[in-house]
């Protein structure tokens, strides 16, 4: 069985995003970019499945600008076998909508004959939390979103999911899409020898047209603004002072 892992290049999670003064978006020039943290978890899970003999090949795919090559090299250094870059935008500030991304991922899954897609639950830039669910809908596959535990056996995946009330376990028939939540695993760091080896692993470049997908957006970003700011209040000197301040504020 082959597994496909979509990885997205996003602003590093340690960087605080700044809105451009003209309201046209978020400033991504000279900002540190990294692999979306949830996608590192997805790559790790795929590699562990391979190490456990449950899958034969791990393919990483990214949709976006040329620079997403770096993100794919990271996935290869972690242990993915090969990578596909679908170049869909020229400008780093152009993001492709999840529906178009999902159509491309679904087309890649079909072309490669994969039986499992493991995506991240959410990209930390646009926080849409949508792509994996859309891929499974487009393929007519089952879905197990927000996974914190995955067991593959006998053509089925038993997945424990993080939900509002706690945890839910479901069994989904393969082929299927799984999306990774924070506590699925702790992703490994790529070692230096593996980073060197990754440079020689295959990385194919494709275009959306080759998969017959139109990436024109359905949404128009009208404007982007800063959220209402919050100012620091005061420091209190003691628990007694805190209690009296809370009483004054009318919250206790």
């Amino acid at each position: 069985m082959k597994v496909l892992v979509p990885v997205k290049r996003v602003i590093d999670y340690n960087v605080k995003a700044r809105v451009k003064a003209d309201g046209s978006g978020v400033d991504l020039a000279n900002v540190k970019m990294s692999m979306n943290p949830f996608d590192e978890i997805a790559v790790e899970e795929a590699i562990r499945l391979k190490e456990a003999g449950k899958v034969e090949e791990v393919i990483a795919v990214s949709i976006g600008v040329k620079q997403a090559q770096e993100t794919l090299r990271t996935a290869l250094a972690m242990g993915a076998d090969r990578a596909i870059l679908v170049v869909a935008a020229e400008d780093v500030s152009t993001d492709i909508e999840p529906l178009a991304v999902a159509k491309i991922i679904a087309a890649v899954a079909k072309a490669e004959g994969t039986e499992l897609v493991i995506a991240g639950k959410q990209a930390i830039d646009n926080d849409m939390n949508a792509t994996g669910q859309m891929v499974s809908a487009l393929l007519g596959w089952g879905q197990a979103a927000f996974a914190s535990k995955v067991e593959i056996d006998g053509g089925k995946a038993k997945v424990t999911r993080e939900v509002d009330g706690g945890l839910q376990t479901i069994e989904v028939t393969l082929p299927a899409v799984i999306t990774a939540d924070l506590r699925l695993n702790e992703p490994r760091y790529a070692s230096l020898p593996n980073i060197m080896k990754a440079k020689k692993k295959p990385l194919d470049e494709k275009t959306p047209a080759e998969y017959g997908v139109d990436v024109s957006p359905r949404l128009e970003i009208v404007s982007t603004r800063e959220p209402e700011g919050r100012k620091a209040g005061i420091k209190v000197g003691s628990v007694d002072e805190l209690v009296s301040k809370l009483k004054e504020a009318g919250v206790i």
Partner: peptide, 11 residues
């Protein structure tokens, strides 16, 4: 978007 550091108006 961006962990609440920006608010987008989308049409």
């Amino acid at each position: 978007v961006y962990a609440g550091n920006a608010i987008q108006t989308v049409k």
